[in-house]
Design a protein around this nucleic acid. Structure first.
Length: 588
RNA sequence: GCCCGCGUAGCUCAGUUGGAUAGAGCAUCGGAUUUCUACUCCGAGGGUCAGGGGUUCGAAUCCUCUCGCGGGCACCA
């Protein structure tokens, strides 16, 4: 159901060569053969050339030929192609193609011309929603939320890059009992602000200091009026104020990471405007809801368990393991019922592709949420749920523990003050989302090769350094005005140069793949690899002056190399933009 | 007990959705190097891809079982 981004302007070399091979097969008189299983891909071992294909192994059976014999026939035909420098047949019947250098430099000209936009798919009309963070509005954003925040935001950017119309949304859980707890906690701070000795914050209330300003605000607004009222009277008054205040804090925190939402969606609104009732009525009509009782949970049985008749959603019909309750024993809706209404609302707003980013502790919800989206859209919409594993914070090689009970968790603003936005964003994406992550406080601020953030940013800065150097050495050169599209790229013939260009040309494939599979970490790894190629070439110039980017007595060659160097920055910039990390021009 | 995720070099992890002799960074070992364009460079060793079975030309990748780690498991949000 997840469609591939289209790539109108980008000629994927692998797709290109596959079509060449398919044509060869047709020319051999086998145009009716099924060629879908033919792959063209980069060989794992670079010594095998640029492109490997399994065509002969896939087609040998229907043709009744030995794989190697067929491979030789195809290889001979391929050798006629002017873009092909060499072909050989290897192993069980692989065909290895070495592409002519001219092919690379021709294609590289496209990159030089399109700059940061190289390989970026056309915009299409598909809307997609990414819901992320959705932290309970009961306090500042803390370390536990950071990974999902960065992941969701970068994934959104990545999908925007690939052509989607992306909508970022934060689901505000402002309806449940925790808001009441929050209001009570604020009330205590209010009393404190009026001079009461409140002692220790009782168990079950939020102990955080961040509620003190709210208490003062309340004291300022109401004086001691609220103290003479019953809880039923002051609670609604305080609730709104403290909630608004928490959301302010959260938005400020998110701004530290340059994260902005298109919308904050209120759960409470779903209750108030009847969306949940409407959803349930709709589902009842479609036969998705019934009254029945569930088998008791296996394993440890809750103390207060009692079997009873419940209103259930037939989640099992949509791929879930068990049917799910919609109404609590006190008659109110379950959180899940609101969640159904919420995801239905997304669908009704036109989002047929949805992504939820959740924390590791919500892994158990994946199936039911997917079931919900399928059910409420009658299989017209699809949800992908991305689970972000926990982050272990390391300082001096030791794990930083935090206890939720004391409210002593490390906040985003503390982390930000210590290391800054870029290391946080980059490192949170320098791992698969479903793998646990160690975040080393000390390492991420180091200026060395060991720090991937620095390593990549430095590559970008190095490009600009080289451009500055070129300006002072080469007559008439200025990055701002120089037309790189006019240089002769065919002068770039060294293997290391060709390899760097190949790496750069691979960017569209990496980025579209990352977008397709919702895996922004591929961008970080690619950028690290690219930086490594670039730094490596720079280092080579130390030993071999003839490989330096600026060659004293050869203006033309210098210009060609500077075009290549400039292109490194185009792609790093494009990648870092997706990650939300700055691309600095210098790093002093 | 059930569901989900994970298990790859001493450590931390990649692995382009089924390709060939499984990669990178740290760490280890061996060399080079002192200002050249900017925060060192080059090389080496290191593997039962947790384990067994299966699918096929071909498996770290797909299926199945076992073991280990993490998370979750009516009515909380």
């Amino acid at each position: 159901m997840w469609l591939r981004p289209n790539r109108k302007n980008f000629m994927d070399i692998f797709v290109h060569f596959k079509s060449i091979i398919v044509n060869i097969i047709a020319d051999m008189g086998h145009g009716d053969l099924d060629c879908t299983r033919i792959n063209t891909e980069p060989p794992r071992d670079k010594a095998h050339g640029d492109i490997a294909t399994n065509a002969a192994m896939v087609l040998c059976k229907p043709l009744g030929m030995k794989p190697r014999d067929l491979a030789v026939k195809i290889a001979d035909a391929l050798a006629e192609n002017p873009d092909v420098a060499a072909v050989d047949v290897a192993g069980p019947g692989f065909i290895n193609i070495k592409v002519a250098n001219g092919f690379w430099t021709t294609r590289f000209a496209q990159l030089v011309a399109e700059k940061e936009l190289f390989g970026r798919p056309e915009k299409h009309n598909r809307k997609l929603m990414v819901e992320f963070v959705s932290a309970n509005p009961t306090g500042p954003v803390h370390i536990g939320h950071v990974r999902g925040t960065v992941f969701g935001d970068s994934l959104s950017s990545l999908l925007e890059w690939s052509g989607y119309d992306v909508y970022r949304e934060y689901y505000v859980n402002d309806a449940g009992g925790q808001v009441i707890t929050l209001a009570r906690s604020a009330y205590l701070r209010y009393c404190e602000a009026l001079g009461d000795d409140i002692g220790a914050i009782p168990e079950g209330l939020y102990p955080g200091e961040y509620l003190k300003p709210v208490g003062q605000e309340l004291a300022k607004k109401y004086g001691d009026k609220l103290k003479n009222l019953d809880e039923a009277e002051w609670l609604p008054l305080i609730k709104d104020i403290v909630m608004a205040s928490m959301m302010m804090i959260i938005k400020d925190d998110l701004a530290l990471l340059d994260v902005k939402f298109d919308n904050y969606f209120s759960e409470r609104k779903l209750h108030e405007d009847g969306a949940i009732e409407k959803t349930l009525a709709d589902m009842r009509q479609r036969g998705l809801v019934y009254e029945g009782s569930l088998p008791p949970p296996k394993g440890q049985l809750p103390d207060d368990y009692e079997e009873r008749e419940q209103t259930l959603f037939k989640a099992t019909e949509w791929g879930d393991d068990i049917d799910r309750p919609l109404i609590k024993s006190d008659g109110s809706y379950t959180y899940f019922a609101a969640d159904i209404a919420y995801h239905r609302d997304k669908y009704l707003r036109g989002f047929k592709e949805q992504i939820d980013v959740l924390g590791a502790d919500h892994g158990g919800y994946v199936k039911r949420l997917k079931a919900v989206v399928r059910a409420v859209s009658n299989d017209e919409a699809e949800l992908d749920v991305k689970i972000c594993q926990i982050v272990k914070l390391l300082k001096n090689g030791e794990v930083q523990t935090m206890s939720k009970r004391s409210g002593n968790f490390i906040t985003l603003s503390e982390l930000h003050a210590a290391v800054g936005k870029d290391p946080i964003r980059f490192m949170m994406l320098y791992r698969k989302n479903e793998a646990p992550l160690d975040f080393d406080y000390d390492k991420v601020t180091q200026k060395s090769r060991e720090n991937p953030v620095f390593y990549v940013q430095y590559a970008h800065a190095r490009v600009y350094s080289i451009m500055r150097q070129a300006k002072s050495v080469l007559a008439g050169f200025d990055v701002e005005t120089f037309d790189f599209t006019k240089v002769d790229l065919s002068l770039l013939q060294d293997e290391a140069e060709i390899n760097l260009m190949k790496t750069l040309l691979n960017w569209p494939k990496v980025a579209t793949g990352a977008a397709e599979f919702h895996e922004p970490h591929r961008i970080s790894f690619y950028l690290y690899d690219l930086a490594s190629h670039f730094h490596g070439l720079w280092n080579k110039g130390k030993e071999m002056p003839q490989l330096r980017f600026i060659v004293d007595d050869n203006l033309e060659l210098s210009h060609s190399r500077l075009a290549m160097v400039r292109s490194v920055a185009y792609i790093i910039k494009a990648g870092l933009d997706i990650l939300g990390v700055d691309a600095p021009h210098e790093m002093r």
